[in-house]
Amino acid sequence: MSWSDAFLGTLKENDVRLVSYVPDNVLKPLLAGVNADNYFMPVSATREDEAVGMVAGAWMGGMRGCVMMQTSGFGTLPNVLASLVVPYQIPAILVISERGTMGEFNVGQALVARTMRPALDSIGIAHHTLDDDKTMPFVLDRSIKQAVATQSPVAFILSPLLTGGKTFKPS
């Protein structure tokens, strides 16, 4: 099974229906899978903080959701995490495709990527780097259950080791 099918299967097993996203190349198979499966409620958002607000509202309304984004999208989130998700105890699930490492060609991506884990640590959000397709379903499943049980958000960082990342042809 592809990493993306396994990922979506685990979301389903955990009742995560709403998937709000701003697209990214590496997320393509996940977004295609979500849009092809009636179980999911896919919503294309214009900004990542909008997507987080939506997932917070859906959680309070009784529907679990996750936000899919690129590393640079995470860069827009610290305020909504610190003012909504963490203090209101919303178990938002953040799925971030990791750019900026292992062959990055865009310096801006490389720089914003370095802010991601320190920002998550400083706001106190648990994060897991998913870099192995064998352990990925276990980590994802257990950590979603923990997020819901403890009413705490969680971030999953999709490493290029899992996804293949985005490569370029040097000119």
């Binding site: 958002a45 997507a51 939506m54 997932v55 509202g57 859906a58 309070m60 309304g61 909504l84």
Partner: peptide
């Protein structure tokens, strides 16, 4: 966005 999430 929060209201939209509740509405969905």
């Amino acid at each position: 966005p929060i209201a939209l999430g509740v509405a969905l």
